[in-house]
Design a protein around this nucleic acid. Structure first.
Lengths: 130, 130
DNA sequence: CCATACTAAGTGCATAATGTCAATAGATAA
DNA sequence: TTATCTATTGACATTATGCACTTAGTATGG
């Protein structure tokens, strides 16, 4: 499996990293979906300059971790058969962890940006050699 | 050099949510500093469960990239000699890129969190099998 | 029928980023 | 002189990400 070994249900080393996984989990929280659709839905979250293989990979990895499950779609498609991914309750838990993690991440980014603009206002955009 | 080749002044692969480098650059924007001090100052930005070697490494890498410069401190210390790191104007530019990047990252996190709470309110916390 | 394009998913390899642990070495105080 | 804190560095392993390429089914037009 790619990625960390989970310990105690947390996000392990995936803490504080990118938005792909949490966004995927969120999308599947809304209902089952195919990889190909997810590639498209991710666009509206700003995840667009990404090779589709990364998304398929994330899905496979999350399945190995037990966050989602897949079966082949019964219905006829415009091409080869599609996998339908469904969130498991472990995946739902994982999503909760991600959400909390993202909240603290956002707070930290906020703090940095705030202190930055504060500093810029006080000191007029110059960095100080001394 | 560790890390990406810079192309056109952008952040390359270093975009997203890792706050170490932008925070370091911000701290040095306020004035020169030693690695050992920076390790400490980072705590107030929530960066505390981190091995100091990662910070020293980030500093060395950023020096190779030209974002900062170092000299050995003249003054006597409580231990071995210390490096003093100073932001360069390239580093200042880099900080600007990071700030902008963090703004868009925050917006995306915001969007995800908002849609998530929205979805939870509408659909009562259940994920949907169908 | 055949070329082309789109749909759908997966593989392999390379490189970049991150983490862990230990080593070195000066200063200080017991 | 042993231990502890200061200060930085190095080696090695693991994890994450990006890119190029492959496989294959379906649809469409000539």
């Amino acid at each position: 499996m790619r990625g960390q070994g989970r310990h105690g249900g947390g996000l392990g080393r995936r803490r504080g990293r990118n938005l792909l996984r949490p966004t995927l989990l969120f999308l599947m929280h809304q209902g089952p979906a195919h990889g190909y659709d997810l590639v498209d839905k991710l666009r509206s979250f700003g995840i667009e300059d990404i090779d589709p293989s990364l998304i398929y990979r994330a899905l496979r990895d999350m399945e190995e971790e037990g966050s989602i499950q897949s079966t082949w779609d019964e219905e006829k498609t415009q091409g080869p058969p599609r996998r339908v991914y469904t969130l498991t309750s472990e995946g739902n838990d994982s999503l909760q962890f991600y959400i909390e993690d993202l909240q603290t991440t956002r707070n930290r980014i906020d703090q940095l940006l705030k202190e930055y603009t504060q500093h810029m206002r006080d000191d007029d955009g110059q960095f100080h050699k001394k």
